[in-house]
Amino acid sequence: MTGYFFVVLGAVLVNNVVFVRILGLCPFMGVSKKLETALGMGAATTFVLTMACGSSFVIDRWLLQPNGLEYLRTLSFIVTIAAIVQLTELVIQKVSPLLHQVLGIYLPLITTNCAVLGVPLLNVTLKYNFVESLLFGFGSAVGFSLALILFAAMRERLEGADVPVHFRGTAIAMVTAGLISLAFMGFTGLDKYK
């Protein structure tokens, strides 16, 4: 049980998908201008990533591995994730048009979001079982959402800062992300207790 807990905690804090693994930066930079969009993107990613981890585990364990098709892993994962993202987009568009507008062009970005592909691939590398895979996916997504939300709140305040002209906008956001990354390095070594 504690093993599961540490899988999630490790994914959220210690190996935060954005700040430590440096994955999924496009949506991280793109959708973090406003707190509410960040919340929406976090929710969407959490859903997609958990689904992606589950389905890719199924495909990997019961389709690819028995048939010795590990070399198709990346390809088939991409196809699966792309389909799931499309599904999510269609559903969101219907269920919550506002969220769809807000996420706008970023939902398709999840398709090519390295976090969404990277986490299932890491699952395989780390040899997680099904539950662990799901938890790891969920934890990573929660870490991603956490990063996004904290960063969005910071950016909302930063918008009022008297930043030198050349650093305004994305530039200072990148600097900020780097410094947050530095802060997250403090968690290094925490996961050795699991």
Binding site: L35, A153, M154, R157, G186
Partner: peptide, 12 residues
């Protein structure tokens, strides 16, 4: 690290 992490969370 703790201070920086909480700095990140401060606006929220």
């Amino acid at each position: 690290f703790a201070v920086l992490l909480m700095n990140v969370a401060a606006p929220l």
